[in-house]
Design a binder for these strands. Structure first.
Length: 250
DNA sequence: TTCCGGGAAG
DNA sequence: CTTCCAGGAA
């Protein structure tokens, strides 16, 4: 059906829903180079402080980043762009600030819950909270209301500088379309797969996820992906199958 | 699975 | 006008 690819990218994922083998690391790094050639260093996370990263990570759940920028601006105006300030502020005031991020009542409570946790358990200090190993910190983050796997990994990687790979909707979509993982793979298995095959480098994790986001945002949309101009076109099964559909073999 | 429930892009 | 975006809780 499809011609064999020199990198082996187009081979089937195994029964566990992921490609395995010695060459997976080479495939992942090849993809990184292709994305890097197109977008370079993305400079993630776009924030001034670790607390701002946390706040942004909660607010960006299931919304466009442009909405978060508005909310961050409103919080800054009212002096609420910090965990202790958020802890002291009434939920209604916080909610009013984060209206642009959708689900604003829920998100105001999430911000309050995180601020309260850090206040009560770490004296309001993120630095002190981050003074533990990655796994323990991840478990603690996941125990906080409003912090799921992706937000926890955002905080670990971009606020705490810990080596934790971030999975999001783009990651699943892109890597399943590439033919490397099953489209229905869960968060933890996919994260484990990346961390098993990627070099243990925090800076690499940082920009790798940022580049995936760029590819997802600019090319790999759910409905009408722009495969023709995508930097990953040469190694993508989805794109080749789309091309095959558009131009049946003569 | 369903709620949550704003805003820019097309 | 319709779509759908850096998800998580119940």
């Amino acid at each position: 059906m499809h011609p064999p690819h020199p990198h082996g990218v187009n081979e089937e994922a195994n029964a566990k829903g992921v490609r395995e083998g010695e060459q997976v690391q080479a495939v992942l790094m090849d993809l990184y180079r292709r994305m890097y050639a197109a977008f370079g260093d993305r400079g993630w996370w776009p924030a001034e402080t670790a607390e701002e990263v946390v706040i942004g990570a909660i607010l960006v759940q299931s919304v466009a980043w442009s909405n978060v920028v508005k909310a961050i601006g409103r919080l800054r105006e009212r002096g609420l762009l910090g965990l202790e300030a958020l802890h002291a502020a009434p939920v209604e005031v916080v909610a009013e600030c984060v209206v642009p991020t959708r689900y604003y009542r829920a998100k105001a409570q999430k911000l309050k819950a995180f601020a309260a946790h850090v206040h009560e358990r770490h004296g309001g200090s993120l630095e002190r909270m981050f003074e533990q190993d990655t796994d323990a910190l991840r478990e603690e983050l996941l125990s906080i209301y409003g912090i799921g796997p992706e937000t926890a990994d955002d905080i670990l990687l971009y606020a705490a500088g810990k080596r934790s790979f971030v999975i999001d909707a783009y990651t699943k979509r892109i890597f399943s379309r590439l033919g490397l993982v099953d489209e229905r793979i869960g968060y933890e298995p996919l994260r484990a797969w990346f961390m098993r095959h990627l070099p243990a480098d925090v800076a690499l994790y940082n920009n790798y996820h940022a580049l995936i986001d760029a590819i997802g945002h600019h090319f790999c949309s759910a409905r009408r992906p722009a495969c023709a101009s995508c930097p990953l076109l040469p190694v993508c099964r989805y794109a080749s199958s789309q091309a095959a559909d558009a131009q049946p073999a003569v």
